[in-house]
Nucleic acid binder design. Structure first.
Lengths: 185, 185
DNA sequence: GTCTATAAAACGATAGAC
DNA sequence: GTCTATCGTTTTATAGAC
């Protein structure tokens, strides 16, 4: 047996990095292979197609957010304001990070529109995001108001993320974080 | 001389429609030619490359917004609240329209990250958008507050546009429009 | 010898460009 | 229509661990 150069998790991580940097459609299997130190054909030992690889990347991002971000919303031992602050802090630092950074916003739309299989899993990510934010707002507001605030928060975060990337300026994210937390005070 | 089947404006319009529907990178020159009833080679009579075509599409969208949307912000004969309402109404109806609909958000990021030439022109669009919104808020708020509100408004609009496309539900846009106008009341 | 992670080469399709 | 490049994918072969 040939010595194993990489494992599946490494390929997913490298793919995420590339998809985030240069989008799904402009990242080739050859690019991914090169980043992993493999020949592109060898990738098919781990994944049956580029779409299957992308699907696993999406699920990997979703799980990471579940475990590292969304979970904070449900920790009743922490005050709501602190929970929200921590959640947005973590999300922001993940988004800004060039390695693991946000991908499901821009790349999500890019792919969800063209590859129908991706749409439901991307929707699930945003639904979980929304639910987590709403949960915290519910501690202070009625269900209907919490719903509106959560919808607004997710939109604001994704929009400021888009502006941050277009203007190459992370202050858009930082300002949004501040505003969202202030809304709970 | 052979009869001219289409003019440049028609090609730009058809390209915009396709880029919006299926993104820049998955729309081929053959797709565009087909939509125009041309041979793909004929497109190079009008544009030297796909990138040049895209650049003209971006500028076309920008001009359309300048003339149809942003201009409203500077019409002092109309009350600020009405101006803002009209601006967001028009922007929303353009975004929702499948023909001319918004493109510089999602496709903007998709291309700006990969093709550096696009970044400054996409930035200009958002700067003009921001300036127009800020101008209206300035009638009621201090410069610093108007600045913040405008930044927030643009982020919210772009974010809700993203959610509208991912969930295939235009209510995200309608709700955002309502909230933004209410903020001026 | 068998299994498997890799490389190498080549496939058909399609891209942008002329 | 043709060209060249490159895409995602498939196939074949090889290297080394059990």
């Amino acid at each position: 047996m040939a010595k194993q150069k990489v494992d599946e998790a490494t390929i997913i991580k490298e793919s995420l990095k590339l998809f985030r940097q240069t989008s799904y459609h402009t990242t080739s299997m050859a690019d991914i292979a090169k980043a992993c130190g493999l020949q592109k054909g060898s990738l098919y030992h781990y994944f049956s197609s580029k779409e299957e690889l992308m699907m696993k990347v999406i699920m990997s991002v979703h799980n990471f957010f579940k475990e590292e971000v969304f979970t904070l919303a449900y920790d009743e031992s922490i005050a709501p304001l602190v929970r929200l602050d921590q959640m947005f802090s973590r999300a922001t630092s993940i988004f800004v990070n060039k390695e693991t950074g946000e991908m499901l916003g821009n790349v999500g739309v890019e792919t969800a529109l063209v590859i129908p299989e991706f749409q439901p899993v991307i929707q699930e990510f945003f639904q979980d995001f929304f639910n987590a934010v709403k949960k915290v707002y519910t501690s202070k507001y009625s269900d209907i108001v919490a719903n509106e605030l959560a919808e607004r928060a997710v939109a604001e975060i994704e929009g400021s993320l888009l502006l941050a990337r277009i203007f190459n300026d992370n202050n858009f994210l930082k300002n949004t974080h501040k505003r969202l937390v202030a809304r709970l005070e």
